[in-house]
Computed example of a mutant assay.
Amino acid sequence: MKHITLIFLLWAGLVSAQHTMQLNKGQSSPKANLEDVSWIKGHWIGEAFGGTAEEIWSAPMGNSMMFVFRLVNNGKVSFYESGHIQQSDDSIILQLKHFDGNMKGWEEKDKTIDFKLVKLEPNKVYFEGLTMEKIDDDHMNVHVLIEENNNTEEILFAYKKVK
């Protein structure tokens, strides 16, 4: 699989997309708490990047909701993500790190990819460059703005809850 990286120009507001949003320069994240996004908890599976994508989210505890993600192509893990949505003062932030199939980190040791909260709706949460939407109790869409080979596009992860 080609190396996929998140585009860092997003935070400057230079790219627009259909399902994701950005904070305007100088704009702060709105007030929110983890209970506002507790509908994300669960075990989710779907297809993306020609393989099977899986996310497992915990319930809120200790001012965070932790998650793990893996993408499997042709029976092998292409990459993992580990992270959380964390309570940060009177708002929330999504932070993650990427790892290849052998758990070698993509980001530097003390660096994370941070997605600040832009907007919150009852069944939809907009972080910078990443939107999560509850379709119903068994379906969730996640839209992620990515860059590959200098092209920017929004990728849909259409998940179904594993029972």
Rank of each mutant, 00 (worst) to 15 (best):
Leu145Ile: 08
Phe115Ala: 01
Ile4Phe: 14
Glu108Leu: 15
Gly13Arg: 02
Asp114Tyr: 14
Ser28Arg: 02
Ser78Trp: 02
Gly46Trp: 15
Ser38Asn: 09
Asn73Thr: 15
Pro60Cys: 14
Asp36Glu: 02
Glu128Val: 00
Thr20Pro: 06
His98Ile: 03
Glu47Ala: 10
Pro30Thr: 04
Lys2Tyr: 13
Gly105Gln: 09
Asn63Tyr: 09
Ala12Glu: 01
Gly46Thr: 15
Asp36Gln: 03
Lys119His: 05
Leu34Arg: 12
Ser38Phe: 05
Ile135Glu: 00
Gln87Lys: 14
Asp110Arg: 05
Lys160Ala: 12
Thr131Asp: 02
Gln95Val: 07
Glu107Trp: 12
Lys124Leu: 06
Asn150Asp: 05
Leu130Lys: 04
Lys109Ser: 12
Pro30Gln: 02
Phe8Ile: 02
Asn123Arg: 13
Ser16Ile: 03
Lys109Glu: 14
Leu120Ala: 02
Thr52Asn: 09
Leu96His: 08
Val72Gln: 12
Ile92Glu: 13
Asp114Pro: 11
Val68Met: 08
Phe69Asp: 05
Leu9Val: 12
Met65Asp: 04
Glu35Cys: 05
Ile92Asp: 11
Lys104Leu: 10
Thr52Arg: 14
Ser82Tyr: 11
Asn141Arg: 10
Glu147Lys: 05
Asn24Thr: 10
Asp89Val: 04
Lys109Leu: 14
Met140Thr: 13
Trp106His: 12
Gly46Lys: 15
Val125Met: 05
Val162Met: 14
Thr5Leu: 07
Thr5Phe: 08
Ile93Leu: 13
Glu128Cys: 02
Ser88Cys: 09
Ile85Cys: 09
Gly46Tyr: 15
Leu10Met: 04
Asp100Pro: 12
Ser29Trp: 06
Ser64Tyr: 04
Lys97Ile: 14
Asp100Cys: 10
Leu6Pro: 04
Trp44Asn: 03
Asp36Arg: 07
Leu71Ala: 04
Ser91Asn: 07
Glu54Ala: 10
Leu34Cys: 11
Ala32Met: 09
Asp110Ser: 06
Ile7Gly: 15
Lys109Ala: 13
Trp106Ala: 11
Asp90Val: 07
Gln18Tyr: 13
Glu81Asp: 13
His43Pro: 08
Leu10Ser: 03
Val125His: 05
Ile135Arg: 02
Gln22His: 08
Trp57Val: 10
Lys111Pro: 01
Glu147Leu: 00
Phe127Tyr: 11
Gly13Ala: 01
Trp11Arg: 00
Gln87Tyr: 04
Pro60Phe: 15
Asn123Gln: 11
Gln87Pro: 07
Ala17Val: 05
Asn33Phe: 01
Leu71Pro: 00
Glu147Val: 03
Trp57Ile: 11
Thr131Met: 06
Glu153Phe: 15
Glu47Trp: 01
Asp89Ala: 12
Val37Cys: 11
Glu108Asn: 15
Val118Asn: 02
Asp138Gly: 08
Lys111Cys: 01
Asn73His: 12
Phe99Glu: 06
Asp114Gln: 14
Glu35Leu: 15
Lys104Arg: 10
